[in-house]
């Protein structure tokens, strides 16, 4: 239940989503509901193709559910005009992807700053925040390096800084350690969880890794389109 100290900042009610494959419909999500309180973390585990990424997409508002509704800070996403959604999303959500998705032409600092610029921050403020975050994540010496000059762990830490630069209320992390070796993955996950806590953000973590999942406040399992 929501309390004044820990209000629910992200909520999903009865989300259903299906995709058409040939002549048949594949029901990926069948009435998924969840809520996330401010500053809390939850994890979602599930087999490949179980719909974890689809659920994150629905929560992020980059896909629309067939049924059900997503609320950002009690605002039904469906009532938010399509044209306003990107700007609100930029300020409200941060994303960490398995494949990092850094822009190859930009250096580390620019990759983080660009997210701040998209959210409407000035270049100076965006740079200051990016620099601070990258310092926190141990990338202070790699500000001028391009993604192809970084290791996998460094890339993901850059992506974490990018996700946090707009001081979002929620981080959506989709298999953030999926492309990293075990040792690096552990270190990156430590840094992700620390950074999320330090910045008082909430997080939805999608992972295969039971160890990482257990470090979040609540753990869910996505099975046959339902959260268990």
């Amino acid at each position: 239940m929501s309390s004044p100290d820990n209000p629910i900042i992200l909520r999903a009610d009865g989300l259903a989503k299906s995709f058409r494959s040939g002549t048949r419909d594949i029901h990926v999500l069948r009435g998924v509901s969840l809520s996330l309180e401010k500053g809390k973390t939850i994890s979602i585990r599930g087999e490949s193709g179980s719909g974890k990424s689809t659920l994150l997409n629905l929560l992020a508002g980059i896909e629309s559910p067939d049924e059900g509704e997503v609320f950002w800070n009690d605002t039904p996403l469906a009532t938010l005009p399509e044209v306003r959604r990107p700007k609100v999303r930029a300020a409200y959500l941060g994303f960490v992807f398995q494949a990092f998705y850094l822009i190859p032409e930009l250096n580390t600092l620019e990759n983080v700053t660009i997210a701040a610029r998209i959210a409407g921050l000035s270049l100076r403020e965006g740079r200051d925040r990016a620099r601070q975050l990258l310092d926190e994540l141990g990338l202070g010496e790699r500000l001028g390096s391009r993604p192809d000059q970084l290791s996998g762990g460094e890339r993901q830490r850059t992506a974490i800084a990018r996700a946090l630069v707009n001081q979002p209320e929620v981080i959506l992390a989709d298999e953030p350690t999926g492309n990293l070796d075990e040792r690096t993955a552990g270190r990156v996950m430590d840094q992700l969880l620390e950074a999320v806590e330090r910045h008082k953000a909430a997080m939805v973590l999608v992972t295969h890794h039971p160890g990482f999942s257990s470090r979040t406040g609540k753990q869910f399992h996505l099975e046959e389109g339902r959260l268990v």
């Binding site: 822009i103 190859p104 032409e105 930009l106 610029r117 000035s122």
Partner: peptide, 24 residues
């Protein structure tokens, strides 16, 4: 330069960061 982000990115895609010359 305090360019809009899309203009900055447009330029950077043409002349990537840290490279003296633009892309091929």
């Amino acid at each position: 330069m305090n360019l809009p982000w899309y203009m900055y990115l447009a330029l950077r895609q043409l002349v990537p960061s840290g490279r003296r010359f633009g892309s091929v």
